[in-house]
Design a protein around this nucleic acid. Structure first.
Length: 213
DNA sequence: GAGAAGATCTCCT
DNA sequence: GGAGATCTTCTCA
C-alpha cells in the first residue's frame, strides 16, 4: 500500500480536492485500524478566500496551513468537533482540503462503538462525524499523510469512479459562491445539503465555473 | 480578561 | 426546521 507522494498535494488545491475523491484514508491507533474512501471534500485557498482560516493571516491556530504540503491540519470548532484537513500547494502558501465525508471500508465495528449510531451511513457522513469515528483530534495535526498514523492511498477498488459533482461550500458565511465542494454522485455517505449552504446547485466536474477566480 | 464567532451535530417539536 | 450544546480561538480594550 503506497501512500500518495508529497508531490500529489503540492499542486492546485482544487485539483487535489477533486482527485482525493475515491482515495482511501487509513488511520492507525496502535493495533486498531480504520479506513474509509473519501467521498466529499472542500477546498480552502489562501488569504484571499474569505472562508479560509488564513483569511486574517497567520495565527497559532492556522500555522500548520502555511507549512509543507502533504501534512494534516486538524482543528477544533463549535466546542464539539474536530475537522480534518490536508495541507496543499507550496510551503508558505496557506491552502488545504477539508475532508467532509468518507465511506467506511475497514474497522466499521470500531467506528460504530465510537459513534454509537444505528446506521452505517451516519458513521462518517460529515466532517465532525468522521473525526469522531476515526478518533482524530488535535494530536493528529501536523502529521504526514504518508503514515504511520495517517495514510492516504489511491483506491485499489475496481471499476470506474462515479461522477464528481461540485457545489458551494457548506457552513461558510462568505465565499459560498465558489464551487469548491467536491463529492461523488449518489454516494450515501456524502453529507446532505444543509447548514446554510447557499449555492450548492451541483455541477459536473470539471466545469468552467470551477475556478479560483 | 471579556466577549463574540465558529468549515458541526444532535435532539426536540 | 430550529435551537441548544460546548469550548477553542481570536479580537479588542
Amino acid at each position: 500500500m503506497r501512500p500518495l507522494p508529497k508531490t500529489f498535494y503540492a499542486r492546485d488545491t482544487l485539483t487535489v480536492a477533486a482527485e482525493l475523491l475515491g482515495c482511501e484514508l487509513w488511520v492507525s491507533r496502535g493495533r486498531q485500524v480504520c479506513a474509509g474512501r473519501i467521498v466529499e471534500a472542500e477546498a480552502y485557498i489562501g488569504e484571499e478566500d474569505p472562508a479560509c482560516h488564513a483569511h486574517r493571516g497567520q495565527t497559532n491556530r492556522n500555522r500548520v496551513m502555511y507549512g509543507a504540503p502533504g501534512i494534516s491540519y486538524v482543528y477544533f470548532t463549535y466546542g464539539n468537533h474536530w475537522m480534518l484537513n490536508f495541507v496543499t500547494e507550496r510551503e508558505g502558501f496557506p491552502a488545504a482540503v477539508l475532508i467532509r465525508a468518507v465511506e467506511p471500508i475497514e474497522g466499521i465495528a470500531l467506528m460504530r462503538r465510537r459513534r454509537n449510531v444505528e446506521h452505517n451511513y451516519d458513521l462518517t457522513s460529515g466532517p465532525g462525524k468522521l473525526t469522531a469515528a476515526f478518533e482524530i483530534n488535535g494530536a493528529d495535526s501536523g502529521l504526514p499523510l504518508s503514515g504511520p498514523r495517517l495514510t492516504v492511498v489511491k483506491s485499489h477498488g475496481s471499476g470506474a469512479l462515479p461522477r464528481i459533482l461540485t457545489s458551494g461550500r457548506i457552513g461558510v458565511n462568505e465565499g459560498h459562491e465558489r464551487l469548491w465542494r467536491f463529492y461523488l454522485e449518489d454516494n450515501p455517505y456524502v453529507s446532505k445539503f444543509r447548514n446554510g449552504a447557499r449555492s450548492n446547485s451541483p455541477r459536473r466536474y470539471p466545469a468552467k465555473r470551477v475556478s479560483r477566480a
